[in-house]
Structure formats: structure tokens, C-alpha cells
Computed example of a mutant assay.
Amino acid sequence: MSLTGLNTVAVAQSKKVQTNAQPIITLYSAGDIADCRKTPAEQTMAAQTAKLISTDLARNKNAYVITLGDNTYPIGKPEEFNNCYDKTWGKFKAITLPSPGNHDYGVPMANGYYNYFDDLAGPGRRGYYKKTLGNWLLLSLNSNIKGQAMQEQKRWLKGVLAQRQSTCVMAFWHHPVFSSGGHGNVQAMREVWEMLADARVDLVLSSHDHDYERFAPLDKHGRPDNNGIRSFVVGTGGANLTSMLFVKDGSEIRQNDSHGVLKLQLRSNSYSWEFLSVTKPNQQGFTDQGDSNCH
């Protein structure tokens, strides 16, 4: 075969590999988002974080937006979703994977949240669901429910984890199990964390505290462990930022000066993260980035 023929075969094989390769999936996530009590929607920090997503989304077509609860303030009324959230993060509604927060439950049965997101919020208005993206299993959970409803969620989760086929798994909900923010550690999802750790889940995202924090991988007891879960608190979606208190074990980086969103890029067996910060004129915003393999 001529050199030209060899080159043609090589190019064809290269194209075949590129065609069959799993595309990188981009996620933009934050919680504690839309608050229009004192400012028109277009002037809020939620509008600024939405602008961050819009700008970066132009370069990442295979993308989704994740909300980590407290989508609106103060109590999740329908008009808050329609007149505040929808005018900011609502532009991403079709590609949004939402989760509810305690402020979304400020009205009975979180009707504002469920009426707005409808089928995107999962079946039966229970507030939890799963989605498979490439080689990743994503679990949106509800940290606001109690009693029998929480037990049903745990049974559902146990079944999903037992049947999983994805190599990489990420879960997200509102109340952080570990946090150095003002609310601190929240016990509501501690048993869920232990289930996820036993299943060697890779990532957990939450918000509730209005700050950004990244933890080293932690085991089921909250102790640093390279085989544990890496977690992030991303309560920087637009609501006023709040104080951080006692630094918890395993906290690697934290800040409460910059609003922004966490950008995750999911590959077939690994992921990378980058905090995209809302910057002020002539100032360089906070950033945090890194990468890791799945378990």
C-alpha cells in the first residue's frame, strides 16, 4: 500500500475513534439563587450568575444546569418563580436538573417549585429522581422530606445504587452533610451519605450555606479518605453571601466573597471542576479548579 493509502486509513481510523468517543458533558451548578425582594430581576446577582452560564454555555453545547435548592426567596411562591427565577436562570429551564431547598418549601407542598419545573422535578412531586448522562449516573435527592417520605427515598436510592451500571456517580441536594458555613453540618442526609459512601459514589453537591467550599474525599464517617466522596457546597447562585464559622475537617478551600457557579466537566471515567466567579471591574475573581478520576 502506498504512503498515501496508509495515511488515508490512519485518518479514517482517527475519525472513527473521535466519532465513537463519549462527548464531554458540562454541568453548571449552584443553589440559593433568585431573590428579587429589593432589586429587579435583571439587576440581581442571580442575573449575573446566569450571565456567567450563558457566556460559557456558548462553548459547551452538551451541557446541563443543576440547581441545589432555594431556587427562589423568600418562600418559593409561584410569582417568585415566574417573576424572578424565570427572568434569570429560567433561560436554562429546558436543560435544568433541579432540586428543592427549604425556602422552596415555604409554601404548602412546595407547589411553586413543582408547578414551575413540572416533569423536570421528577415523578410524583416527591423531589428526587435519577438521570444517566454518558457513563455517569446523576441522583437528584430531596433533603427536605421527613418520616415515611424520607424512608421511601432511601429505599428508592438503595435500589438505584444496587442496579447501577454507570462507572461514575454524582448526587446533589440542598442541605450539606459537611459544611464550615453558618448552618454547619446538617444531619438530615447523614444516612444517605453513608449509603453513597458504601456504594463508592464520586461526587456530592449541596448548598444551603451561602458560600463556596470544597472538601477532600471523605469516608462514611466524614474522615479524609482517598476512596471517599468529594463534596462541594455551592450556595453562591445569587442570594446574599453569609459568614463562615468553624472550619470542618477535610475542608480544602472555601470563600464567601464571590458569587458564581461550579462548572463540572464529566468524562467517561473522570471529571474536572472549576469555579466560575462573578467579577467586579478591574478585579480578579476567586477561582478553584482541579480534576480527579472516578472510583
Rank of each mutant, 00 (worst) to 15 (best):
L68C: 06
A21C: 12
S268L: 11
R254I: 07
E194V: 12
Y85S: 03
Q151G: 08
E274I: 06
A41Q: 05
E80Y: 06
P23V: 10
S258W: 15
L266F: 05
Q153L: 02
S272M: 06
L245N: 12
A46T: 01
V204H: 13
V261G: 05
E274C: 01
V247K: 02
G222H: 02
A63K: 07
E191Q: 11
D211L: 13
R164E: 05
D119T: 15
L157V: 00
N111L: 12
N111W: 14
V201S: 04
F81S: 00
A197T: 01
L137H: 10
G237M: 00
T19W: 15
L97G: 00
S54W: 13
R230E: 04
G90C: 08
Y28Q: 06
S166Q: 15
W273M: 03
C36L: 08
W89L: 13
S166H: 06
N282P: 12
K146F: 10
Q163A: 15
K91F: 07
Q283N: 07
N20W: 12
A21D: 11
L266D: 01
S270C: 10
R125Y: 02
T44K: 02
I33Q: 02
N82Y: 15
K38Q: 14
D202H: 07
H183L: 11
V107D: 09
H210G: 08
N82M: 14
G250I: 00
P74R: 11
G228K: 00
T279W: 06
M195A: 02
P98M: 05
S258K: 06
P217S: 12
A188H: 11
A94V: 09
K15H: 14
V192D: 01
Q43H: 11
R37I: 02
G184Q: 07
M109P: 03
D249Y: 11
L161I: 07
F232Y: 11
K91L: 15
N111Q: 15
D198K: 12
H208I: 06
A41K: 05
P98K: 02
V177N: 05
L266G: 02
T44C: 13
T279F: 04
T39C: 07
D32A: 01
D56E: 10
T55F: 03
Q163L: 09
D70W: 00
N102T: 07
D32F: 00
N142K: 13
S2F: 04
G112R: 00
S166K: 13
M244F: 03
E80S: 10
N256I: 05
M150G: 08
V107L: 02
V17E: 01
S179Q: 07
P23K: 11
H221W: 09
D118R: 15
F246I: 10
K77Y: 12
R37K: 10
S243D: 12
K51T: 13
Q187G: 13
S179E: 06
